[in-house]
Design a protein around this nucleic acid. Structure first.
Lengths: 236, 236
DNA sequence: TCGGCGCTCCTTGTCAGACAACCTGACAGC
DNA sequence: GCTGTCAGGTTGTCTGACAAGGAGCGCCGA
């Protein structure tokens, strides 16, 4: 028995944590597929030999991470990708001026790469959806919500076409953070028209499988939007 | 009353969710600074007029996101940046073969851009720490844990030198996901030596402020590691 | 004077039991 | 075929009780 001291403090783990880990294990091991129902609380009580409150607190931990969902008639495993990440980012990054700049920079980098990947991997269905989104933007030049929805749809389709879910999740997360600013972008005189034109360029580059061009135009697009928002903010 | 049906189901919120939101509000509003103690459970019971179990389940939700910490003599707000994001990603992305590919691809893109930014923004202190990390890797070629720690330190320093906290958080998160694989990388014959050499190249590019070169070498580095891990896995 | 020991009190941790609220599916009645 | 109702299982919530953790205080002895 050399130095068991380095093993760190002997910590008595809390029951609800242990239960949460066991359940997490089940999910990680795919014993609990999305949609499956988690054993009833009372069953877990018997299985783990703990109190019901410990089981419930463990379930709450998983629920708050979006892994399961309790619904009155049972608790179920959930697929729902993405939500917790958004919230985490929201809490990580305060949205003062400097951080907004960092967020936009991150968005520029990631969406730029996303566009480049999309140019290599897109299929005809993706192209059709991007074109549809552009049409919708055109038709929604006088309606903020229509326009913004269509704009979002375009970028999401690009993300999907990239074929990389991790990258596209990160993009979602960041976009959620700058969403407010994007509402402002609609108010910039001539902004929506310029965005529309740039979206057409992006689509053309992706359709022609020109990855570098897609990346560059996407960069320019996001940078322009950021600049316009910033200038509008200063003028007010 | 046209179609209020689109408003979705009327849902009765659960008490523990409401409590969690109230507490979240306090944190978001900075009424609860890191280190501050959260009011005792029984006080919250009185304040919100709910049962203690609801309060406790709400606390568990916040605890599992790393916002607070319960310690037997009180519950405290926590600063700890970054952790929840790691966990979220951990839970978001399943780690089967295909996903591992996506994770590495994401890492390649993000760390590539991180390196490019670092080349533009690094300062002498960053360079010194990168050099120190490389020395440590060299000295740790026969110790897996020493080597891996040093490798991690190098990449983290690059991230910090990028000057963009959002990007560097994303990088942390993804890296946490591939950490396991990186342990394997150490076992690849000649792998650590090649990594060491590539790290030197990255440092040289960053020091010389050659952004494109830094990006390219970082790309090559990560791609090589991924390939080696994959080949080792197949041979086993 | 000062270090250390133990006590006390407040807090969280855990369990058990009870009842309300919710959801689904089955079934009877129209 | 449609609707209303009921039953059974599950989660939602509260209460009360006691164990266990942790910090601070004061007493005691050196």
């Amino acid at each position: 028995m050399s130095d068991n001291l380095t093993a760190g403090p002997i910590e008595r783990r809390k029951t609800y944590e242990l239960v949460a880990e066991r359940l997490l294990g089940l999910i990680a091991a795919r014993s609990l597929e999305p949609g499956d129902s988690v054993p009833a609380e009372r069953e877990l009580v018997e299985a783990f030999k703990v109190g019901r409150s410990s089981v419930r607190e463990a379930l709450r931990m998983l629920e708050s991470r979006g892994l399961i969902q309790s619904r009155g008639n049972g608790t179920f495993a959930v697929s729902e990708f993405g939500n917790p990440l958004h919230e985490s980012l929201a809490l990580l990054v305060a949205v003062d001026e400097a951080d907004e700049r960092e967020l936009f920079e991150a968005r520029r980098l990631i969406e730029g790469e996303t566009a480049a990947l999309a140019a290599e991997r897109r299929n005809p269905a993706h192209l059709a959806r991007m074109a549809a989104a552009i049409s919708a933007m055109e038709g929604g030049l006088d309606s903020e919500s229509t326009y913004i929805d269509a704009d979002l749809a375009f970028h999401l389709t690009v993300a999907e076409a990239s074929g990389n879910r991790v990258v596209s999740h990160l993009m979602h997360a960041i976009r959620g953070q700058v969403q407010l600013a994007l509402g402002t972008a609609f108010l910039v005189p001539g902004g929506p028209q310029r965005s529309l034109e740039q979206h057409r360029e992006i689509l053309a580059a992706i359709e022609a499988r020109r990855a570098d061009e897609a990346r560059r135009v996407m960069h320019d697009h996001i940078q322009r939007v950021e600049r316009e928002i910033h200038e509008l903010g200063r003028r007010r």
